[in-house]
């Protein structure tokens, strides 16, 4: 067991897969010699060389196109889109090409590739470098969508994503990069689509993702002080979505709160809420509550950004509302 940062876990997880499989390659802007703008790929260039860790121009379409063409012809690329906001300049490759090609060709083409991206707010970067776009990805058939909350999960889920035969969008929440956690020694591989119950409590079910998981756990501590015990579920992936774990918990607690960093409309919590409403309505003893960033672009100033993103206090308040 070694303690490492979320940031170092990214390089650790990539190295585990590149060591294992010579067809795994890493491609992106500044991922090589510079070690990544978030220093999440430090050491890989020296270790695996310029043929397998490849720096690119600022050309997101070219990066994702090259990854797709390589994936369909025998490589397993890990592509980096530096900030998830930049998906907007290469969304054609993601939504029209990578997501649809297996289906349109009746299964002739396989695309085993991972697109990593730094997602989310908290760094005071302003509206074009802070978005949480996991709900964009979730809306496109043909994409798997993963967002780890701990260093351990970065390694295990990244390994699962690289070994998956389908395209996976892997969202690294940038406010988590400096956080630390234990990562077991030896090879670590998780399964996509399996949520983790991070805390058990009988009064309400709080479902969160990525950076909202530690925040939900903090809110759970506060609630416990006032005698409210909540279950906190870390979804870990949106596609596949672990409905079983969520529904099982809601059937026990009768209350559901989602904590989403994405803006309000069509956030992933809306899908979770709709499934629970459709399948667990008679188990519910209160309103489903969604705690989200309001439907606004994220502002830059620390006071404004903090006010926009779901805070511990808003999560606590959301749980209280669900218990009404």
């Amino acid at each position: 067991m070694a303690e490492m940062t979320y940031r170092d876990a990214v390089a650790h997880g990539i190295a585990q897969e590149m060591d294992r499989d010579p067809t795994v390659v890493l491609i992106g802007e500044d991922v090589g010699a510079a070690g990544g703008v978030f220093k999440a790929t430090v050491g890989l260039f020296d270790r695996f060389g310029p043929d397998r860790v490849v720096d690119t121009p600022i050309s997101e379409q070219a990066i994702l196109g090259a990854s797709m063409g390589a994936a369909m012809t025998g490589l397993r690329p890990i592509a980096e889109v530096m900030f998830s906001d930049f998906f907007a300049v290469c969304w054609d490759l993601v939504a029209n090409e990578i997501a649809k090609t297996r289906y349109m060709t009746n299964g002739q083409v396989s695309l085993p590739l991972v697109i990593r991206s730094a997602n989310g707010g908290g760094a005071r970067f302003g509206a074009q470098h802070s978005q949480s776009v996991e709900n964009w990805a979730m809306a496109v058939p043909g994409l798997k969508v993963v967002a780890p909350s701990t260093p351990r999960d970065v390694v295990g889920l990244l390994a699962a994503a690289v070994r998956d035969p389908d395209p996976v969008l892997f969202f690294e929440q940038k406010s988590l990069y400096p956080t630390k956690g234990d990562v077991p020694e030896g090879e670590l591989v998780d399964e996509l689509g399996v949520a983790a119950v991070r805390r058990h409590g009988g009064h309400a079910t709080v479902v969160a993702l990525a950076a909202m998981v530690p925040r939900a756990l903090e809110a759970a501590d506060h609630l416990a002080e006032e005698g409210v015990e909540v279950t906190v579920i870390d979804l870990r992936s949106l596609v596949p979505l672990d409905v079983t774990t969520v529904a099982t918990s809601v059937r026990q607690t009768g209350h559901l709160v989602t904590v989403e960093e994405n803006p309000r409309l069509c956030g992933w919590g809306a899908e979770v809420a709709s499934i629970v409403a459709e399948e667990c309505l008679f188990d519910l003893d209160g309103p489903i509550v969604r705690v989200t960033t309001p439907h606004v672009p994220l502002p830059a100033a620390d006071a404004l950004e903090d006010a926009a993103m779901p805070s511990v206090a808003r999560i606590v308040e959301g749980v209280r509302r669900s218990l009404c």
Binding site: V25, D51, R52, Q61, A62, L64, G65, A66, S67, M68, G69, A70, A71, M72, T73, G74, L75, P77, D92, L93, N96, E97, T101, T105, V109
Partner: peptide
Amino acid sequence: MMGSYAIVGAHLTIANGAAWSSKVR
């Protein structure tokens, strides 16, 4: 025949990927 692509321009980048793969392999 690795595909006919209907969004103008995208497949040039994808063709690069096949060529890159051939070079790496």
